[in-house]
């Protein structure tokens, strides 16, 4: 089935909404999302919750180890484990 230029499915709208949380949605995608938001209550509710999640995580300043740091830790621990055995 040919995809509509302006009208998108709810699933597609949700994916664009996810992308836009990371600044990864294109201009055209954002327009399509805006159109869907104007009439679809489900997309609106999803977007509201999704934005709220983004804001909460940003506010938390949560951090994680970088890949190299995790690997270094892994190497040190396995070395220590070997020494202990």
């Amino acid at each position: 089935m040919k995809k509509s230029v302006l009208f998108i499915s709810c699933e597609e709208a949700k994916q664009i909404c996810d992308k836009s949380q990371y600044g990864d949605a294109t201009f055209w995608e954002r327009i399509k999302l805006t159109i869907r938001l104007s009439w679809c209550r489900v997309t609106r509710a999803y977007t509201k919750r999704n934005k709220s999640l983004t804001k909460t995580i940003k506010f938390s300043d949560v951090e994680c180890l970088k890949k190299e740091e995790r690997q270094a830790l892994k190497d040190q621990l396995s070395q220590q484990l070997k020494n202990q055995n």
Partner: peptide, 28 residues
Amino acid sequence: NPDNWIDNYSDYLFNYTISRVNDREMAK
């Protein structure tokens, strides 16, 4: 099961620490 400690808990412990000591190196 120490073999899985890093994969399962390192990020959780790291975040727990960094939010309390505010120093990445120290947290590591």
